[in-house]
Design a protein around this nucleic acid. Structure first.
Length: 109
DNA sequence: ATTATGACAGGGC
DNA sequence: TGCCCTGCCATAA
């Protein structure tokens, strides 16, 4: 059994997030079945640093806040990328977050 | 080999 | 606000 499958799955889901949309740690965790531990998703993101095509900037916390922006190369990289995709970011927060939220269970199912 | 502790980009209570 | 929980990883004993 390869525990790494979990990380791979997280990355896969994040990769499936369409442009102009964002997802939350909890949503991914729930989709994977580990809904209790969104923290683990954050860990997967941490491991995703060395992985390509991992739009971690599309992953935000339940508040729609760019909690992980500090882990980016630059603190502005995350909001800049989001803005480029058409997502409004103000005060380090997603504008109209509920409308931009992309739930794998809801839309990918 | 095994358990214990610390650390982490969250969530819940 | 503060504490507890979960899951994975790294290091220590």
């Amino acid at each position: 059994m390869e525990q790494k499958d979990f990380f791979q799955d997280v990355w896969e889901v994040v990769r499936l997030v369409p442009k102009g949309r964002v997802t939350t740690y909890g949503a991914i965790a729930k989709y994977l079945g580990t809904k209790m531990s969104a923290r683990m998703v954050g860990w997967a993101m941490n491991a995703a640093h060395g992985q390509p095509k991992i739009p971690a900037h599309r992953v935000v916390n339940r508040n729609g806040d760019l909690s992980g922006k500090m882990h980016f190369k630059t603190p502005t990289a995350m909001e800049d990328l989001l803005k480029k995709e058409g997502i409004g970011v103000e005060n380090d927060r997603i504008v109209d977050f509920p409308n931009r939220l992309w739930d794998p269970e809801k839309e990918l199912i």
